[in-house]
Design a protein around this nucleic acid. Sequence first.
DNA 1: ATAGCTGCAAATGCTTTGCAAGGCC
DNA 2: GGCCTTGCAAAGCATTTGCAGCTAT
Lengths: 142, 142
Amino acid sequence: MNLQQKKTSAPDTTVLEKLRASGLRPTRQRLALAKLLFGRGHCHVTAEGLFNEAKQTHVNVSLATVYNALHDFTAKGLLREISVDSSSSYFDTNTDDHHHFFFEGTGELQDIPPDSVRIAALPEAPGGSAISRVDVIIRVRD
Amino acid sequence: MNLQQKKTSAPDTTVLEKLRASGLRPTRQRLALAKLLFGRGHCHVTAEGLFNEAKQTHVNVSLATVYNALHDFTAKGLLREISVDSSSSYFDTNTDDHHHFFFEGTGELQDIPPDSVRIAALPEAPGGSAISRVDVIIRVRD
DNA sequence: ATAGCTGCAAATGCTTTGCAAGGCC
DNA sequence: GGCCTTGCAAAGCATTTGCAGCTAT
């Protein structure tokens, strides 16, 4: 489609920095995928979805490499994985604390503005264990 | 493969009623599974887990039938499906509005007491769509 | 040079399906 | 009897893995 590089995207150097800073070797494939992911505003992708975007942009990557890259990025804190639907995993380029709408009909995710959900009275984790994350998913029919 | 009844479980008639009321034909397999699910306090199961419980109780069911039953029960509102982990689906015998702890190490789920989480300022669903459910999952390391 | 990546295809694991045989009303 | 259910095995997906060849440093 019309996914050519726009001047609005982050410059390649930024993405390169991001990879270097995280300790991941900036290979051609990872750079291309990182550019797709981080070059625009925040987005939610599946492995399959990113793979297709890559194909359309004439970036040669195998699906296995997409999975590897997504997991590597997630392990380094560049992405966040979200489980809403057991049929496939979503990855979010926004790693800040925030929550999601999930459109049951289309399977799309959308960020909820950070202040419109507030959680009062968060319970202690049982047995002195540490809370690693709180996920709020608002499922909407569409 | 005769099922013996335990006096500690809910009486069979209760489970039978439950199935009849929902319009599901109370077959031997569904009755046995329903008894495992609803005969004790609330619990969270996976298909595989329920299948193993059935085996240990000398209840003869195939894994496919367990999946069918779980989905049938869910469709009739007797169970609630929860997505926390893309590797497998959980089913909750508690269909009331409530939330969960997820123990990342063991993959276990635990109910959060209903009043210890309170959500303030729930946003409107975009585009006039209706909220079908709000899931809060607190992930804890253990 | 070499440790780390990639690609392919095969393998895995959860879940669904097709269809003949069986069971509930 | 008729129709819904079951069971098995096979098929389907999303995801992972093994390994030979490639590449960034």
